[in-house]
């Protein structure tokens, strides 16, 4: 029963959504599939509560057991509620509530979350430099070709590098754009995209037909 019902639901939902692709939106099947999408949104909304419960429980346990860094866990819990509570309260009560400009949520978002997100993304520059230094080795003929190509593309993508390339014989930037990016790169990207799409379709089919049940902890 614990396996049959979810597999049956997955089969019926999958079948409906696939069938709906072949019917117009204003038909019964089309309408039903749109209804199902709305249900998904509602279910997704309710599961947010699960997330809050999990984050509080994990951090609260760490605080109670005085685990290393428990002070930061207090900050985590405070931050969750500091962002969430004022944003769900009605702005009619106070301009600090809601999510409009001037609200607590907006202030925290603009002045804390946005710079922190940008900072995390910016650290990629450091990590890319370190990963490239460590991993790019001319260990074989293939790796050497990759290394030379990557170097040329990196030079081509910045003005100083392009100046260097211009001093060399032949139109290297045009070659890189036409053959490397528009040729080899595009062919490889297409290959991976087509392969991955087929893999996704095959996996979906296995799920709909109940062959693949590992995502439910079965099989």
């Amino acid at each position: 029963m614990r396996t049959t019902v979810p597999v049956a639901i997955a089969f019926l939902s999958g079948l409906l959504l696939v069938t709906a692709f072949f019917f117009r939106a204003d038909t019964f099947v089309g309408g039903l599939s749109q209804e199902l999408t709305v249900w998904l949104t509602i279910v997704g909304g309710f599961t947010l509560l699960l997330g809050v419960v999990s984050i509080v429980r994990v951090n609260w346990t760490a605080i109670q057991r005085r685990k290393e860094g428990w002070g930061y866990k207090i900050l985590t819990i405070l931050a969750v509620f500091a962002m969430a509570i004022p944003s769900v309260l009605s702005p009619d009560w106070s301009p600090l509530f809601g999510r409009a400009e001037g609200s607590v949520y907006d202030w925290l978002f603009q002045n804390l979350q946005m710079p922190m997100m940008a900072t995390m993304f910016a650290t990629l520059a450091f990590y890319i430099a370190s990963a490239a230094y460590r991993a790019f080795r001319a260990r074989s003929a293939e790796a050497t070709i990759l290394l030379i190509t990557a170097t040329l593309v990196m030079l081509w993508r910045v003005p100083m590098g392009e100046y260097i390339l211009d001093q060399l014989p032949g139109d290297i930037p045009a070659f890189l754009n036409t053959y490397v990016m528009g040729g080899f790169n595009m062919a490889v990207q297409r290959g991976i995209i087509i392969g991955a799409a087929l893999g996704a379709a095959s996996m979906s089919l296995r799920i709909i037909l109940g062959i693949e049940r590992t995502y439910m902890g079965k099989g």
Partner: peptide, 21 residues
């Protein structure tokens, strides 16, 4: 800034390969 960082990465890769060889 992007130009200098790209050139730096290329220099680092070259340095790493010299060490490797």
């Amino acid at each position: 800034a992007q130009s200098l960082v790209h050139l730096l990465i290329i220099a680092l890769v070259a340095l790493g390969n010299i060490g490797y060889f």
